[in-house]
């Protein structure tokens, strides 16, 4: 199976099948990550579109200095912040909470975890999602957020302390 770098170099050569495979790997991950930033399904879909179009157009300029995942999440993050600024000018409120409506049965625990995540300060929630869901290392997260590695570790420390308080 081709790794992300191989797929991206094929995308740079305008290989649509490789682009679809890369989309398959990242679309849901980007959507859920952006959902935790913007809490709006329509805006999250818009960000997925903008991100993947930017990947298609910018694949040839990827220098390989970072992981492909860090590059893609960086694009998504920039797009999300740009959209947030646009929405703030229009004074639109976030559309929905992260927690699924009326979680029941096997989803009950997931609902509690999502509620606990939502209770975190945004900068702590982002670190937890990037680390535990997206699988980024603290170095990659520091690069993505443009903060020192120590800041990432510190945000994680306080986030997990609060999560554990909420979930026990």
């Amino acid at each position: 199976m081709a790794d992300d770098r191989e797929l991206l170099s094929l995308v740079a050569a305008r290989d649509e099948a490789a682009f679809q495979r890369l989309y398959g790997r990242y679309a849901d991950r980007v959507f859920r990550y952006v959902l935790t930033l913007l809490r709006d399904h329509h805006l999250a879909e818009e960000v997925v579109q903008e991100t993947m179009v930017a990947v298609w157009r910018g694949a040839g300029s990827f220098k390989g200095g970072s992981q492909v995942s860090t590059w893609i999440f960086g694009i998504a993050r920039n797009q999300a912040h740009a959209l947030r600024r646009r929405e703030a000018r229009g004074a639109r409120e976030p559309e929905e909470p992260l927690v699924l409506p009326d979680p029941a049965g096997p989803l009950e625990r997931e609902g509690r975890v999502l509620a606990a995540l939502e209770g975190l300060p945004p900068e702590q929630r982002e670190v937890v999602v990037l680390a535990f869901y997206e699988g980024l290392s603290y170095r990659e997260i520091a690069e993505l957020l443009g903060v020192p590695e120590g800041t990432v570790k510190s945000r994680m420390y306080f986030a997990k302390r609060k999560l554990r308080e909420e979930l026990t």
Binding site: R32, T36, V48, L98, E110, V113, V128
Partner: peptide, 18 residues
């Protein structure tokens, strides 16, 4: 593991996005 499972329970990119 719980965070991962909770995030996976969120919907993915809507059909038609591709």
């Amino acid at each position: 593991q719980e965070v991962r499972a909770a995030m996976e329970s969120l919907p993915g990119a809507p059909k038609g996005t591709w």
